[in-house]
Simulated scan of single mutants.
Amino acid sequence: MNLDFSPETETFRQTVRRFFETEFPKDIIEKNRAGLALTTTEVRRSEMALGAKGWLASAWPEEYGGPGWSVEEQYVFDEELERAGVPTVTPMGVVYVGPVIYTFGSDAQKEKWLPGIRDGSVGWAQGYSEPGSGSDLASLQFSAVLENGTYTLNGHKIWTSAAQHADWIFLLTRTSDAGKKQEGITFICCPIDAPGVTVKPIITIDGKHVLNEVFFDNITVPEDYRIGEEGKGWTYSQYLLGFERTSYARIGGKRAMLRHVRDIAREMPENGNYRLIDDPGFARKLTEAEMAVDGLEMTVFRILSALSAGGSPGDAASTVKILATTTHQQITELMLDAVGHFGQPFGKAGDLPDSLPAFAAPDVATYFGGRAQSIYGGTNEIQRNIIAKKVLGL
């Protein structure tokens, strides 16, 4: 198997790299590299910079305004974006709901929503999980009652990423209790600033505001905010989740993290005698993490081959989800080892120097934030069940 990219793809890589080095807002890259949260204005500015280039909806078909890239070019673009330190594109619009809208939505819905998703001017959030309905998503109880062409929405969504930056939220709602629980679920869009919608921040262990609770109290939306058929929301959500789980790979970002770990391990002394990078045990674990990233990349390449042949990520995307999350955690554990005592949030007098290295706090935050990766988007245990049943036929 030839894993080298073609000369044309490498030329494309240089074009993308030059854009990030010379045209993309440098202040946003600097803030992202420092581990600082972006404001809503900065998120929009970051994504609109890509949208203005026609590169935000990088995987969309040309028919819907995508750049018409091959899967290899999409992969290279993602790799260069992460290499440059550009904030990861908020996936809820371009990766998740956009493909659902252009695949299952009406022409009017495509006209209404796709332009703002494509150019980055409109933000979206994903309303799936509820208290008590996380991994067992089909047990959700968020209600949508249709009367005279209007849905009335009531319920509580939780772990809602980027809701504080969103203009719209797409929701899985229960419209029927008849039959199997999956059969009564409907996919509906709602403006997040509608009267009666309340967004409550959830501050996570890394000190960041990424997640939210969202409450809906008798919110009314027109029937044509429903995507596709009533009761088919579960089908649409499974289509979406294939793209979501594949998007977790982020090979370029993981390689950048490994370079960072190696750099600080060269600087950090171990017991005052030698550099941490010279410790055989640490060096072995670093090599194992690099091999894990290589293995993840090979898995992604296999899925890309299927996509090139006209396929979809399908249930094999669960493999990427597991490998991506465990590899991320493997790398961040090394990051914490490299930071060492500088990562302690508190210490006795004299334990810590007056001035900490600039990387200490962001690296510890990255470690803590990464612990959630094996839970969100479907726990790794759930992904293994999917593989066992749907891939291996057990």
Score class of each variant (00 low, 15 high):
residue 18 R to N: 12
residue 251 I to K: 01
residue 368 F to S: 05
residue 274 Y to L: 10
residue 194 A to N: 06
residue 121 S to Y: 01
residue 324 A to D: 02
residue 378 G to T: 12
residue 379 T to I: 09
residue 266 R to I: 00
residue 41 T to I: 02
residue 213 E to G: 05
residue 286 L to Y: 10
residue 140 L to C: 00
residue 77 F to R: 05
residue 178 A to L: 12
residue 269 P to V: 07
residue 250 R to Y: 08
residue 357 P to W: 01
residue 47 E to V: 08
residue 111 E to G: 03
residue 341 H to R: 06
residue 175 T to P: 13
residue 354 D to S: 11
residue 298 M to S: 04
residue 13 R to Q: 09
residue 163 A to S: 14
residue 316 A to F: 14
residue 346 F to I: 06
residue 236 Y to T: 07
residue 201 P to V: 12
residue 373 Q to N: 10
residue 371 R to H: 07
residue 11 T to D: 13
residue 52 A to M: 10
residue 59 A to K: 08
residue 149 G to V: 03
residue 119 D to I: 03
residue 164 Q to T: 11
residue 102 Y to D: 01
residue 283 A to R: 01
residue 296 L to M: 09
residue 181 K to C: 05
residue 122 V to W: 05
residue 36 L to M: 07
residue 335 M to C: 08
residue 349 A to Q: 01
residue 2 N to C: 11
residue 53 K to Q: 15
residue 212 N to F: 00
residue 345 P to W: 04
residue 293 V to G: 06
residue 356 L to G: 02
residue 100 V to D: 12
residue 45 R to G: 00
residue 167 D to L: 04
residue 188 I to C: 11
residue 159 W to L: 14
residue 154 N to W: 13
residue 66 G to C: 09
residue 323 L to W: 05
residue 234 W to E: 14
residue 391 V to T: 02
residue 40 T to V: 03
residue 24 F to Q: 03
residue 349 A to D: 07
residue 223 E to L: 01
residue 256 A to D: 12
residue 80 E to V: 15
residue 104 F to G: 05
residue 258 L to R: 08
residue 272 G to T: 04
residue 20 F to R: 02
residue 250 R to N: 13
residue 381 E to R: 06
residue 332 T to N: 11
residue 62 E to P: 08
residue 381 E to D: 15
residue 147 E to T: 15
residue 266 R to F: 01
residue 82 E to M: 15
residue 80 E to H: 00
residue 373 Q to H: 13
residue 352 L to R: 09
residue 314 G to V: 13
residue 49 A to Y: 06
residue 62 E to R: 15
residue 339 V to Q: 12
residue 63 E to I: 00
residue 227 I to K: 10
residue 265 A to R: 06
residue 48 M to D: 10
residue 129 S to N: 11
residue 55 W to P: 04
residue 325 T to I: 04
residue 358 A to P: 14
residue 251 I to L: 12
residue 238 Q to I: 06
residue 70 S to E: 07
residue 125 A to V: 00
residue 275 R to C: 09
residue 369 G to Y: 07
residue 275 R to S: 15
residue 17 R to W: 04
residue 46 S to G: 10
residue 17 R to F: 07
residue 374 S to F: 04
residue 9 T to K: 03
residue 312 S to C: 02
residue 360 A to W: 08
residue 303 I to C: 13
residue 157 K to D: 00
residue 298 M to W: 04
residue 295 G to S: 02
residue 392 L to T: 07
residue 75 Y to C: 06
residue 45 R to Q: 12
residue 150 T to Y: 11
residue 243 F to Q: 13
residue 126 Q to E: 13
residue 192 I to Q: 09
residue 175 T to W: 00
residue 73 E to Q: 13
residue 161 S to N: 03
residue 200 K to N: 05
residue 64 Y to I: 05
residue 208 K to H: 02
residue 79 E to C: 05
residue 293 V to H: 13
residue 383 Q to H: 11
residue 303 I to K: 08
residue 243 F to E: 11
residue 76 V to Y: 14
residue 277 I to H: 10
residue 149 G to C: 12
residue 33 R to D: 02
residue 24 F to R: 03
residue 380 N to E: 15
residue 348 K to A: 06
residue 388 A to R: 10
residue 348 K to V: 14
residue 307 L to G: 14
residue 242 G to F: 01
residue 376 Y to N: 14
residue 112 K to C: 05
residue 118 R to T: 04
residue 214 V to F: 08
residue 112 K to M: 03
residue 180 K to E: 15
residue 169 I to P: 06
residue 255 R to H: 13
residue 335 M to H: 13
residue 336 L to I: 07
residue 216 F to W: 02
